[in-house]
């Protein structure tokens, strides 16, 4: 992770413009403009389009029309404001929250490989002027640390199938956000799944799930320590195709209460691990980085 951080810092200092493609579980792409991050895309977190559509702020038709009219010149936001009445401030909040949310999801696991591709890609809702990578990494560490303190392993939490305890029916819960989560807490959906269903951020939904578990509304209790996990009734997902291995640690983040996963993934033979190649030149010139 330190290699990735240092590469990203190097791209910032070099005022890189282009895409930083990250392979891992999940994969993602960071789009940088003059060294600042304008957007991040990943299947692990809802992007601005999904947030706007699933929350009901705009319709599919409005998005399609705005995209068709404005995508090439990065005027999708202006088109949405004019045609769908979504304020520029609202779009800015959505774009910024989606960016940080994607970073959080990517930060759950150690990136396997990454490489930078120079060039400008039109983005539908870029954050202007962009987020400094240092600030992004700080906020991501804060989020992971916060979840570690409240629950235990963030990776473990992200893999949970969210299940209601039955203590309260959704209609009896005054908190609207909790009510919406309870409606989908059927033991089949992970926090990410629920985020996509509700049009909310993955970290926001995960935060609420922790609060709801503390209140006894959802199955699963945070393990106070690795030796004190008795009583936790956490449903373990069956491993899905394409799932990678969780990161062992997060540099700079302590896991005093991290509970070991109940199902440890099978070890990968050493010969199959990505090999680190010595770097030549500065990042941003098509260099390949590999996670050690």
């Amino acid at each position: 992770m330190n290699d990735f951080r240092s590469d990203l810092t190097g791209l910032c200092e070099g005022r890189f413009t282009g895409a930083l493609r990250i392979e891992g579980t999940p994969a993602g792409v960071m789009y940088l403009r003059e060294g600042l991050i304008a957007a991040i895309t990943t299947p692990g977190a809802p992007g601005p389009e999904s947030l706007l559509l699933k929350s009901g702020r705009i319709t599919e038709r409005e998005w399609s029309a705005a995209f068709a009219a404005g995508a090439a010149e990065e005027r999708v936001g202006e088109e949405l404001t004019n045609a769908a009445g979504v304020s520029a401030a609202e779009l800015e909040v959505v774009a910024v929250s989606a960016l940080y949310d994607a970073a959080f999801v990517l930060g759950l696991n150690r990136p396997e490989r990454w490489h930078a591709e120079p060039g400008t890609t039109p983005l539908p809702l870029p954050v202007r002027p962009g987020v400094h990578p240092g600030e992004l990494l700080r906020e991501t560490r804060h989020r992971l640390s916060s979840l570690s303190q409240q629950w235990g392993s963030p990776q473990h939490l992200a893999a949970q199938r969210v299940t209601a305890t039955g203590r309260a029916t959704p209609s009896a819960v005054p908190n609207t956000r909790f009510r919406d989560i309870l409606l989908h807490a059927n033991g089949r959906h992970t926090p990410r799944d629920i985020a996509f269903l509700l049009g909310r951020g993955t970290f926001a939904v995960t935060t609420d799930i922790v609060s709801m578990a503390h209140r006894g509304l959802l199955d699963g209790r945070p393990a106070p320590s690795s030796a004190g996990a008795a009583g936790a009734a956490i449903r373990q997902p069956t491993r899905q195709e394409g799932e990678g291995h969780p990161a062992v640690d997060h540099p700079g983040v302590d896991h005093p209460g991290a509970a070991p996963p109940a199902q440890a993934p099978a070890p990968v033979p050493p010969a199959a691990l990505p090999r680190r190649r010595p770097r030549h030149g500065r990042p941003g010139a098509g260099q390949h980085g590999t996670g050690a």
């Binding site: 909040v93 910024v96 929250s97 940080y100 951020g201």
Partner: peptide, 9 residues
């Protein structure tokens, strides 16, 4: 501030 995540906008 985001009232759920604490993110500063």
């Amino acid at each position: 501030v985001d009232g759920t995540t604490g993110l500063e906008y």
